[in-house]
Amino acid sequence: MKEVELKILDMSSVLKPSDSFALVLEEVGGEERKLALIIGAVEAQGIKMAEMHYRPPRPFTHDLLLNVMAVGRLQCLKGVIYQVKNGIYSTYLYIRRADGEVDVVDARTSDAIVLSLRAGFPLYVYEDILEKEHLRNISSDGSSYTMSINSVDIDMLKRAMDEAVQCEDYERASQLRDEIRKRENEENNKN
């Protein structure tokens, strides 16, 4: 599967008074397609600290992990976003051991981004995911855009449905209701 390199473009708060943030990643070169990930305040803080190259007085979890990897002579080669499901992005880290073998480790995408910023390895996404999930209808100033419904979790869908009902946009509300029911049925069928 083709991998497309990504870089951080922007991060902003999205839901008030919620503590959610939209992290926008952009394709390096090419068409400059963008992905938006919804992350929490703690994850946003970790990414912002890594972007600023802030070193806390004592190691935070990401620093601890990188220190342990250095002692064990492990090197992260790259991170690859391999899946998006119900608003959750999943990433593999490719780790080279001291003997040269490469292992693949599953990681939260926000953790992979912080580690990438701290350790300097590239972050990629599979081409088909980028094509399916990239932001559309971006305004000229970048302040508004359309996200794929797959990029949003059920709680956010429920809030959007409530907002659509309040605005009397019943067609949109029914579409969101159907998506919520579909996901809840899928979840119930797993159990």
Rank of each mutant, 00 (worst) to 15 (best):
A44G: 03
K48H: 07
K48A: 15
M49Q: 13
M49L: 14
M52V: 09
M52W: 11
Y54P: 00
R55N: 12
P57E: 15
R58V: 12
P59M: 12
F60T: 00
F60M: 06
T61P: 03
H62S: 12
H62Y: 05
D63W: 06
L66K: 02
N67K: 06
N67R: 11
A70L: 03
A70H: 02
G72A: 15
R73H: 13
L74E: 05
L74W: 04
Q75Y: 00
C76V: 10
L77A: 06
K78T: 00
K78Q: 15
G79W: 03
I81K: 09
I81R: 11
I81Q: 08
Y82E: 13
Y82K: 10
Q83Y: 12
V84G: 05
V84R: 10
N86P: 00
N86F: 12
I88C: 03
S90A: 09
T91I: 01
Y92W: 15
L93T: 08
L93E: 05
R96S: 12
A98N: 11
A98S: 10
D99Q: 02
E101F: 04
V104I: 11
V105P: 09
D106L: 03
A107I: 08
R108Q: 13
T109N: 06
S110E: 14
D111S: 06
D111P: 00
A112Y: 00
A112P: 07
A112G: 13
I113W: 01
V114T: 07
L115H: 10
S116K: 09
L117E: 15
R118L: 13
A119R: 14
G120Q: 02
G120H: 08
G120T: 10
F121R: 14
P122V: 00
V125Q: 04
Y126S: 05
Y126R: 11
E127K: 13
D128M: 06
I129T: 03
L130N: 04
E131F: 01
E131Q: 09
E131W: 00
E131H: 12
E131A: 06
K132Y: 05
E133R: 01
L135D: 06
L135W: 08
R136K: 07
N137Y: 01
